[in-house]
Design a protein around this nucleic acid. Structure first.
Lengths: 205, 205
DNA sequence: AGCAAAGTTAAACAAACGTTTAATTTAAAC
DNA sequence: GTTTAAATTAAACGTTTGTTTAACTTTGCT
């Protein structure tokens, strides 16, 4: 599916507004104004407000994918954890708005048209984590009995918590601006998640 | 602040709807129907839809508080972690709807009237975690250099991730119904978070 | 140049929104 | 029993909502 310049303007405007005000809190006139287009253009190009959301998710699916296939290249299982977490956080952090929209709307809209595509990607990501755990067990470094689903939930949840509570956390951490917050996520938070997963996978009992 | 039976009906109906459809996705007529009252009663008792949300949060503040004061009674720092996590998860799990509403609306509404109260409680909870870490360091069991904010974010984020992605996770974990999901959270997920924090705090380097 | 399709616009549409009104019923006080 | 306040109702209020219309402009093709 390809979009012209004006359609992309609308999609980007919608993303900005959905991420800050939510889908239901955003009117098509808001989107039209933000994108500098006539209100009717949205229905002309996308059919309806609901279909715009569907199309938006469809459009962003590639950005939701996290490329961890080269993980097999790096050496030890401990290093694999570091690389995986780094890729995850960098990818999510560079698409903060998308992840905010997904987080908010996927909980509200019980049946998203596009959720199947996201599901597949999630399942693939779970398999990557499982393979890292198994390679670590084979190396004799990781303990057995750790569920990839729980580790994935911990990683995603910790990151998303930083997205959803930015105002509170930014103040608590004494960070001045949004850029500084993004930097904190890519350094300190990344290291924390890496350390947590490695600690968990090597923990006795 | 005290409420009569009809006001509580409205607050409970609002909670149910806000948790599933969000504030903007819920109309006052929806709430009135869910609570079996006339539409005008909502404005009569609460002034406006916005003030209803404020009042709802105010009403639920006590349920947002997590009682961890008796933590000092239990023995080792490792046990304190177990007790704290257990209290946290049990409290959050018994007020799932409230936590969903907070999670969704606190990100959208940039300035909630009640957010100061929640902030205070969060800060208090952070102090409890800090004291547990310090007692563990004094015992010689925990390593230094762990930020309570990050541990708190991990715990909350992991739990919230289970709230926000219930459909996906319930299917992946092969859990039949909502009760089973709640049970999983109170057993397996609780143990996972406990283990993760203890692993992290005792992790070398 | 002429024509058909695509793009663009302001205006209008009905429906839903939050809120208010005015009339009526219920409850409490004297 | 009468009076006064609180509770409750159906109806209407003016806006805003998502969407459509119909007229107009631009574009691309022969």
């Amino acid at each position: 599916m390809e979009f012209n310049e004006k359609q992309i303007d609308i999609l980007l405007a919608a993303e900005r507004l959905f991420a800050t005000k939510g889908f239901d809190g955003t009117s098509v006139r808001d989107i039209a104004q933000e994108a500098n287009v006539n209100v009717a253009m949205i229905n002309y190009y996308f059919g309806s407000k609901d279909k715009l959301l569907d199309t938006f998710f469809e459009w962003r699916v590639p950005d939701f994918m996290i490329n961890v296939d080269e993980l097999s290249l790096v050496g030890s299982a401990l290093d694999k954890v570091d690389v995986m977490v780094d890729r995850y956080v960098k990818s999510m952090n560079s698409h903060r708005k998308l992840y905010r929209v997904i987080a908010i709307e996927s909980t509200l809209k019980q049946r998203m048209l596009i959720s199947e595509a996201f599901k597949k990607l999630k399942i693939h990501n779970l398999e990557v984590i499982a393979s890292i755990i198994n390679s670590g067990i084979a190396e004799g470094v990781f303990k057995t009995g750790n569920d990839p689903i729980l580790i994935h939930s911990m990683m995603m949840g910790t990151f998303m918590n930083f997205q959803m509570n930015q105002v509170f956390l930014q103040e608590q951490l004494g960070i001045a601006d949004d850029d500084g917050y993004g930097q904190y996520i890519e350094t300190t938070l990344t290291e924390f998640i890496q350390k947590t997963i490695k600690a968990l996978l090597t923990y006795e009992k």
